[in-house]
């Protein structure tokens, strides 16, 4: 599949090569290699503390890496290349480069002093300098798509967890991202609210959005993911088509993890 996509567009959506990440002396990511094709849905699974969040956060440069290289649609985020070396760019340039990578957090992180609609249009109007009316129009369309057309004037505190997470997804989409990163988008939700958020993700996947999703919802991964990546202790233990990794894992560690979560 990777080969196919690279042939068709010539450039991978995400390309991670030899990435190492350390927090001080704590080595969190070891020699990461991962390629995601445009339109592909990748689910990252693995035990808590295995480095899944860290990997996502390195992709949009919320965290700096200590070795290796990450490209998103062929471009570096937070670095520029000078011969053999990568040099950190200014904060301003980093911000510009990460605009087209949307991120959704476990804790929603909606701006609590702004209404749902204001949450959506804040970055498009201020960062991308889109005219207010245009941003509002698109924001309302997106709120409608996630089933919250009537909630645009509500503040986050007045919404349920599931509704907040759907607003958060719409907020990321409002920047017209080419890649969406989801860090356990349903882990903070009551069980009966998980479905409504996963429905939105499924919709996105059907619309050819490139997505990387950290999740513990194995059923969802089996249904929606093209590729499943299993991580443990900062290493990619196994990756491959969803059905293969989830139903006939090659590695003992993957087997044990899947037995525990399902």
């Amino acid at each position: 599949m990777i080969d196919l996509a690279e042939k068709s567009t010539g450039v991978a959506a995400v390309e991670i090569r030899g990435v190492h990440k350390l927090y001080g002396s704590l080595h969190v990511l070891h020699e990461m290699d991962l390629v995601v094709a445009p339109g592909e849905v990748v689910c990252l699974i693995g035990p808590s503390g295995s480095g899944k969040s860290t990997l996502l956060r390195c992709i949009n440069n919320l965290e700096k890496i200590q070795a290796g290289v990450i490209k998103v649609f062929g471009e570096l985020i937070g670095y520029r290349r000078a011969g053999e070396r990568l040099i950190e760019t200014t904060k301003r340039e980093t911000c510009r480069a990460r605009q087209h990578v949307g991120m959704v957090f476990q804790q929603f992180n909606l701006f609590s002093h702004l209404t749902a609609l204001q949450n959506l249009i804040e970055a498009p109007t201020r960062v991308q300098r889109l005219p207010r009316e245009k941003a509002t129009e698109y924001a309302k369309e997106l709120l409608g798509k996630v089933g919250l057309a009537d909630k645009h004037a509500s503040y986050p505190a007045q919404l349920s967890g599931g509704q907040q997470q759907r607003v958060a997804i719409a907020r990321a989409l409002c920047m017209r991202p080419k890649l969406m990163l989801f860090d356990e988008p349903t882990s903070a939700l009551d069980p009966e609210l998980v479905g409504e958020v996963l429905d939105v993700l499924r919709d996105l996947a059907n619309n050819e959005m490139t997505m990387m999703v950290v999740t513990h919802e194995i059923g969802f991964a089996r249904q929606v993911a093209d590729t499943v990546v299993f991580m443990d202790e900062g290493r990619i233990v196994e990756q491959g088509p969803a059905a293969q990794v989830l139903d006939s894992p090659r590695h003992e560690r993957t087997k044990r993890f899947l037995e525990r979560v399902s």
Partner: peptide, 18 residues
């Protein structure tokens, strides 16, 4: 202010000043 608020703003490409 909750750290998640800064993180979300940063992920949206907002500069520190903004």
């Amino acid at each position: 202010v909750d750290h998640g608020q800064r993180e979300a703003a940063e992920a949206l490409g907002m500069s520190s000043w903004l």
